[in-house]
Design a binder for these strands. Sequence first.
DNA 1: CTGAAAGCGCTAACAT
DNA 2: ATGTTAGCGCTTTCAG
Lengths: 335, 335
Amino acid sequence: MTDSTPPTLEAVAARAGVSRSTVSRVVNASPKVTPEVVAIVTAAIAELGYVPNRAARMLASRRTQAIALVIPENTALFFSDPFFATVIQGVAMRLGRTEYTLSLVIASEDDPDKTRRYLQGGNLDGALILSHHRNDRSYLSLAGELPVVFGGRPMSNEGDDLYVIDVDNVGAAQVGVRHLLSSGRRRIAHIAGRTDMAAGIDRQQGWRDTLAAAGLEADLLEVGDFTVTGGMAAMERLLDRAPDLDAVFAASDQMASGATTVLRERGIAVPGQVAVVGVDDNAYALSSIPHLTTVAQPSVEFGAAMAETLVRLIEGEDVARLTLMPTRLVVRESA
Amino acid sequence: MTDSTPPTLEAVAARAGVSRSTVSRVVNASPKVTPEVVAIVTAAIAELGYVPNRAARMLASRRTQAIALVIPENTALFFSDPFFATVIQGVAMRLGRTEYTLSLVIASEDDPDKTRRYLQGGNLDGALILSHHRNDRSYLSLAGELPVVFGGRPMSNEGDDLYVIDVDNVGAAQVGVRHLLSSGRRRIAHIAGRTDMAAGIDRQQGWRDTLAAAGLEADLLEVGDFTVTGGMAAMERLLDRAPDLDAVFAASDQMASGATTVLRERGIAVPGQVAVVGVDDNAYALSSIPHLTTVAQPSVEFGAAMAETLVRLIEGEDVARLTLMPTRLVVRESA
DNA sequence: CTGAAAGCGCTAACAT
DNA sequence: ATGTTAGCGCTTTCAG
């Protein structure tokens, strides 16, 4: 038979033979409590299975210990990008070591203000914003009222007054394209990501820059939307336009995967006739035939960095405004 | 200029010239308040921009207005299944019309009790549990202490004392296999889902039953894990074992997609030589070549049903213990 | 280093 | 129909 009411701090205090204040201090890891007392209290907590009541805690401390993870309304589309799905894992992992709770906020597309109001309602200590596209301007102002960390440089951001975790997308693309260049490819096409997201634009820029630096023309461009089908369609268009292309750099493994499928479907050998390089290094890289050469991004670490930055921000520490995560080339069979 | 302290219920009461209780009643839409008073109070609330403090509310009412969405630790793997990613969308959508907040709880695999303690800690009004596999026994007992709704019949559940939203997986498989049968296929293999999840087992059962009913032997079985690569590997094994098979029923579109890739890779025409049927009807069905014939599940509605059931449960209404969502065959090119 | 006391902002009997 | 009165469980000065 289980108690209908969970044990309170008071019960722990009684059990440990100390005052509630002391238990509170132990729970909050206050440095000024005798190790012995800490031990006793900790034991009592364990025995009773005590869990602090968040509401009471919030009310008394005026901090919610909750942070929001704001994601776009179309969760299926969002999560279908393994990058985001994995970032969340990193966020959760890092948060697991703290007392912060993760609140999933699905941004309503037709009523963005509703989301904003909720975020500003004082129910959250901070927010993590993932997948910021051009229209989400409303979140920019949010940053003034609440600690906010963006995953990926937001579009339409004038200054450098935001906290953002990002990868060097331009650099990542350069690495991928250079790999292609170094194996002798000269007609290198690009399947770009969404042009309303920084990652899409920046990777495209990296491709363009690298070709320019090599004295090559950056004319073979088709936009996908980071998805497999988007990659397939883009590849079709590319092939129709330029049957002579000998390589394609896609802004995501999903698109690269779609591209290889189309290529093989048309009887074009990969990498024999056309080499393919993606970005991400996720499950798609290994479910493609052949396995993809790709520019890996550390997605779990990316999420962890977001969480870490936000927590430190909330706790008043000094944090870098921009944290750039490293990328690295993973060479497999496709290029 | 923003106030440093938000307006309290008390401030509203003063402004409206009534007691705090009355304001509280108005805020909570109590029926027994004079319309005139309601108007006055409402006006005061608007003028002051009053927003109730969640913490105080929770503490006093002992209801959190928060529900947990419990998902497995490996979020990347979890979300990579479009079914789950979409279910979440349904949950969020349905919850958007309520006052409930969605808290993402990532179940720690190495310390399942940590998760349980949190859930039991009285911080949540209820929980939604997705992807329940055999080892997650600990959540079963949870149902005794907190309103809980399972997405998909949990494994290792003795009775029918739980609330679950599910699809008729056996029936879904039957529909898929019968479609294959009706087009004359006789050597129908099955690529099963994880055998530690009800959906995997039940679909396998449906395949087996249908073949048995047709007087056919159900010997061509290989287990995948619901993923594309799992489907590829299973298909390879199947082909090695039985080069004469003329159809495969896969327990997910991801696996069906992997299977068609392997088939075509080996120069086997789909559906010419081997017909393929999947389950789900998600993005994979359309990124496969050819597009997949599949048994569709209503995933958004599934999520909405979970949310709806939980909310009603929390609010003390009478709800069905089992809600079965309908599936339907979607015929495309692969079979 | 520890305890006592005073709330945090709201809801919920209980009166009136 | 509205006001009064107690708390909800915890943190946080302030003493000691």
